[in-house]
Design a protein around this nucleic acid. Sequence first.
DNA 1: TTCGATAGTTCAAGAAACCCGAACTATTGA
DNA 2: TCAATAGTTCGGGTTTCTTGAACTATCGAA
Lengths: 101, 101
Amino acid sequence: MAEFIHPNLADVPLTAALHALSDPARLAMVRNLAGAGELNCECALPSCAAPKSTRSNHLKVLRAAGLIETRREGRELFSRLRKKEFEARFPGLLRAVLKAE
Amino acid sequence: MAEFIHPNLADVPLTAALHALSDPARLAMVRNLAGAGELNCECALPSCAAPKSTRSNHLKVLRAAGLIETRREGRELFSRLRKKEFEARFPGLLRAVLKAE
DNA sequence: TTCGATAGTTCAAGAAACCCGAACTATTGA
DNA sequence: TCAATAGTTCGGGTTTCTTGAACTATCGAA
């Protein structure tokens, strides 16, 4: 399990960020992470919502879009929103998305 | 050619709006429309960028997401950004997207 | 009022992306 | 060392996207 690649936000295209946020399951993860500080894969999207391979893929997309940072602790992986960095890269975007609905 | 359906913005889910904006060609169209007032299909995305069936589909996605309004004038179709309505539905979102990059 | 050109839609099929079960890797605790 | 836990990767079935070809609608000119 090679450890995770966290892109430099400067290298993330706007369309990739929007794409990452445009899926209901991923958006739910982002909302959950915005509320909590850090969550593991299981808590980021409750198990009823999708099988773990799907959750894992969603987290990979969020990671590639610069939205989350993941670190291992024992056998769990904890992810946090890269809120400040993302905000610096796309001012107002995450705020607008979290506020909406 | 049945005329166009323009959804009530209240019925547009956030994820549909983000999905519509997450494609480079559609984002380019939105940027072009934000600059100009109204554009036809050809001008919204210059022909070099995609065949017309693709442009037509992209415009349909933008329409369904409540981002544009289209009207016929002779044999051309002109589209405009539904800027105010979209802004009222998703405050800050379009502004953040147009500002980015 | 018919014909040709222009503007765009719809259809269908091939290409690309997504989802999820099964098999695998990594870590821990007994 | 073994079983359990947490998550990844792989494969292939399904869905979605793209685009050429055929179609519809409108206009201007003969």
